[in-house]
Simulated scan of single mutants.
Amino acid sequence: MSAHTEHHDDGHGHDDGASHSTLKGYMTGFVLAAILTAIPFWLVMTGQFEKSSTTAAVVLGLAAVQMIVHMIYFLHMDAKSQGGWNMLALIFTLVMVVITLSGSIWVMYHLDHNMMPSMMDVKSLP
């Protein structure tokens, strides 16, 4: 058997376990992303909810869903690709983002609460 006819699988082939999308898959992702962008825009522009905190929660929820749509349809991330390492990296990234955002909000809240003078303090100044 000659060296030219042997096939060495070095892991750089096209069958690496990642899902490859078609035009239909990309169009599905695009339509979902467009809808998930239009709904929050409509909610904010029309003022559908009386409380702004409700609007913010709905917009954040739809943003999380849109991130998942992007990861599945455009980044082709799933639990099977690359032996599950993509999912592990995603979970680690999400944990870091949650820690960073919650810590930042916590620090900003306490700085605002402890450092900003109240209106009563401002009126009593000469």
Results as ranks from 00 to 15, higher is better:
V97F: 06
F74R: 11
M108K: 11
M116C: 07
L23G: 10
S21L: 10
N86S: 07
Y109R: 11
L62N: 07
L62S: 06
H7L: 15
D16P: 10
L94C: 07
W106A: 08
G25H: 08
V59Y: 01
Q82I: 02
P117R: 09
I35T: 07
G29V: 11
G17M: 10
P117V: 04
V69E: 09
V97W: 05
L101S: 01
I35F: 09
G61H: 03
K24W: 05
I72C: 08
L75Q: 12
G29I: 09
I99P: 00
Q66F: 02
E6R: 02
A34K: 05
W85G: 00
A64Y: 06
G61Y: 01
S52K: 00
W42I: 13
G11D: 10
G13I: 14
H8N: 06
S118V: 05
V58I: 15
L125D: 02
S124P: 10
L111A: 12
L62K: 09
S21D: 09
A3F: 00
S52Q: 04
S52C: 00
G83L: 14
Q82D: 14
K123C: 09
G84L: 01
T100N: 13
A33P: 01
G11K: 07
L90I: 02
L101M: 03
L111D: 07
M67L: 15
D112T: 11
Q82W: 09
Y109S: 04
E50L: 04
M108H: 07
V58E: 15
T46K: 05
A34V: 13
S102P: 02
S53Y: 10
V107Q: 14
